[in-house]
């Protein structure tokens, strides 16, 4: 899943570890989400959205929805 997490994080000058600390997750988790290797659960996605004061859709882009539409 594509997302703006890396952009938002660097805009604020935070390291992955600093963001991880704020979210209560491991640095590897932040890295995995940023690189699209891991899709966060709803609670974690909401926590990320709250932290950046944005909506989830403004951070995460639902590619699979587009794929499904394209497949039809």
């Amino acid at each position: 899943m594509k997302n703006q997490l890396r952009l938002l994080r660097t805009e604020r000058g935070w390291s992955q570890a600093a963001l991880a600390e704020r979210l209560g997750v491991s640095r590897q988790s932040v890295n995995a989400i940023e690189t699209g290797k891991y899709d966060p659960s709803l609670p974690l996605a909401f926590a990320i959205a709250r932290l950046f004061e944005l909506k989830i859709e403004e951070i995460f882009e639902d590619e699979s929805g587009e794929e499904a539409l394209a497949a039809e």
Binding site: L23, G24, V25, S26, S29, S41, L44
Partner: peptide, 9 residues
């Protein structure tokens, strides 16, 4: 108890 990504790993 740990975060969801670490849990899965």
């Amino acid at each position: 108890e740990t975060d969801e990504y670490t849990r899965l790993r």
